[in-house]
Design a protein around this nucleic acid. Structure first.
Lengths: 292, 292
DNA sequence: CGCAATTTTGAGAACCGTCAAAGACCGTGG
DNA sequence: CCACGGTCTTTGACGGTTCTCAAAATTGCG
């Protein structure tokens, strides 16, 4: 007989979280590719967190479609509502019918699915500029949950508003489609990582991807980034046990590749790490608006 | 040191494929849920493959958005071009800039990514009615490849035509967005399976999902379905070795749950299998057009 | 200062991969 | 008709990666 296992979930002790990230933005160009850094200095960047808060959506969508004035004003109407959520309490819940999605202005969140035996798989982490629960909004019921890892600030996007905006300004719909496609590409990349890479490669890839994404919004560099994730969270994301994550991180550290310590990820030897992980970010490449 | 392994890929012996599926369609309602079957009879269904060929796109999108006459006629213009591909030769190639996507009219295909060491991860299989390479079309470069598993018939959708249609008829853009979202939901479900389920649960889930999807387009039932997949292909999809797939399939068969034999998947005890796999298809639910 | 969450380490076992080889099936060509 | 090669399936033996259980060390916080 095939045993129906009774595994205790490895990743449950639910992070009330250790540190609240400070999401100060440098004026880094969102379109900037990860290749051309000034690979440099300020990890704990100073600056104002204002810009991202007001037009995270503009930025995100503008990366895919060159938006006209009217389209921008429609967008402005779309995500006026600002809200705050505290770490640990779900924003979106699996099985619920959602009326709104959000755009993350500051803080970290994660989207995950729970299995019946209590295990969970984190599908992705969301960082400033990312959608929260977009798919839940589009589909009838949410197939996943979203939990803030730190306290987060978001702007709310109502279902009817969004669908209405699509009818008014078709290019907006296209923009959202493109943004969603890139998100899907990222999920696909995670799938490959979990399906075909060993623990060390997986974790290396995971950290490199996070770094690249954070760099795009000015919250990281080739040197490293601030990271509020516990090893339990990482484990749930890469499909390993927390214990094994710990062991592998030690290995990577001892090999001089990357150090995860005190809420910081430091790339000790970025190039060697990228090579080791076979890190390939073409799936994130976004040189400019696809739609002029 | 962390060893950089030199694994030979488990799934390469490239299937020139054993059997060409006959994609005869029953007049099953595409919106029909998997719950209410006449759980029945004709696995090797007879009938004409005509309907799906002509308006696979209409059907697919119509499931999400109630389309008007003009929108339907725009769609008609969109995928006039019919093409055929032989099994085994890639339709879309990773890294290429694609100008067209396709809608599968008959046959099976798979989308996959190759790692540098030659391993591959199959992201999903496509069955009649599914998009091929939609994401490749939307993004600048394709992040994956698409290979026909059997000989396939497709209708072609040109990039510019599609984007043009979006501008003309915004609801079409919304429809494609919704369709793409459901595809993403499916990838997410695969991710969970690979990340958090053991080999037997994974395979069971995999077969059940295929069955549900095929049933929606009239190519399967609760009793089973015709299936051109080799164990190598299944292995590459669920992130296992082909050898282990074989062992687990034997186990499932001996437990009286499901039998995979001679191009056929037979659900010997559907309910027990679904229970064993914790199969949950809310992520596929689609009761009717979301947009009236 | 003490509790809770997180990180770290060890030991043993389970799951799954690798290697190897034999058997089954199918089409081809002699 | 049979031999042959190719692909796919099946099985066994062995080893490694990763999981589980358990407990200690560390950190954060009230």
């Amino acid at each position: 007989m095939l045993p129906v296992e009774d595994r205790a979930h490895p990743g449950r002790p639910n992070s009330t979280c250790c540190m609240v990230s400070n999401n100060h933005l440098r004026s880094a160009d969102l379109h900037q590719l990860f290749g051309n850094f000034h690979d440099t200095t300020s990890l704990s960047s100073v600056g104002k967190a204002v810009e991202m808060r007001n037009n995270a959506l503009e930025r995100k969508l503008g990366a895919f479609v060159a938006l006209s004035e009217t389209e921008l004003s429609v967008l402005d109407e779309l995500n006026k509502r600002r809200r705050t959520f505290v770490a640990g309490r779900d924003i979106v819940e699996q099985g619920q019918t959602e009326q709104s999605a959000y755009v993350l202005a500051s803080g970290w969140a994660c989207s995950y699915k729970l299995l019946q035996d209590g295990q969970r798989q984190i599908v992705d982490f969301q960082i400033p500029g990312d959608f929260l629960g977009l798919r839940s909004l589009l589909m009838h019921v949410s197939d996943h949950s979203v939990e803030p890892i730190t306290d987060v600030e978001v702007t709310e996007v109502l279902r009817d508003d969004l669908l209405g905006a699509f009818t008014q300004t078709p290019r907006l719909a296209t923009a959202v489609l493109l943004a969603a496609s890139r998100d899907e590409a990222m999920v696909v990349e995670h799938l490959v990582g979990i399906g075909r890479r060993n623990a060390a490669e997986r974790l290396a890839n995971f950290l490199l991807e996070l770094g690249a994404r954070l760099t795009l919004v000015g919250l990281g560099s080739k040197a490293g980034f601030e990271c509020p994730l516990t090893q339990y969270l990482m484990a749930d994301a890469v499909g390993l046990s927390a214990v094994h994550v710990n062991r592998v991180l030690r290995q990577l550290r001892e090999d001089g590749l990357v150090t995860v310590h005190e809420g910081f990820v430091s790339f000790d030897d970025y190039d060697r790490l990228a090579k080791f992980a076979e890190f390939d970010l073409t799936y994130m490449d976004q040189i400019g608006p696809l739609l002029k």
